[in-house]
């Protein structure tokens, strides 16, 4: 089991730092990378909210999921082209399953966007607990490993 805890010194002297990238830039890159999590989490929230108003029989979950991710990308400032999202869906799904996207998959997702927006009442900003959780975990005294496990579970 590798050790994922680093000394402060190690955290400063990262491979990127050794490679000539200053700490500030690296931190920015890391934040940018981590933002994608929020996008996925936001998309998932949209997905759950959507199916509190519509049935899975009425709207196919693959299209809804693709659309939630597409919309979340725009809201969280990590936009992905609709075409690219569909391409990923196509790669992940068997040709047979991909048929739910119909003849014009892009139009299908864009149309879905309007229905999704209306259904979730344009409530697009979702606050996620992860940041707060991490802050909270830092305040919890006790076995660091246990705290880490708790955070993972949450």
């Amino acid at each position: 089991m590798p050790c994922w805890y680093f000394e402060k010194k190690e955290l400063r002297n990262t491979p990127s730092f050794q490679d000539g990238i200053d700490t500030e830039t690296e931190n920015r890159y890391r934040r940018e990378g981590a933002r994608r999590y929020d996008t996925c989490a936001t998309g998932v929230v949209y997905f759950h909210r959507f199916y509190m108003f519509h049935s899975f029989k009425e709207f196919h979950r693959y299209i809804t999921a693709a659309c939630c991710l597409f919309l979340a990308g725009k809201v969280e400032e990590t936009p992905k082209k609709c075409r690219d999202i569909i391409k990923i869906c196509q790669n992940l799904l068997s040709p047979e399953l991909f048929t739910v996207f119909g003849n014009d998959p892009k139009e299908e997702v864009i149309t879905m966007e309007r229905i999704l927006l209306q259904t979730i009442k344009f409530d697009l900003q979702v606050e996620h607990p992860y940041g707060l959780l991490l802050k909270y975990a830092k305040l919890v005294k006790g076995d660091k490993e246990k705290v880490q496990k708790l955070v993972q579970m949450a």
């Binding site: 597409f70 725009k74 809201v75 309007r114 927006l117």
Partner: peptide, 8 residues
């Protein structure tokens, strides 16, 4: 790309 990002 559907609804523009600025409006969203």
């Amino acid at each position: 790309e559907g609804m523009p990002m600025s409006a969203i």
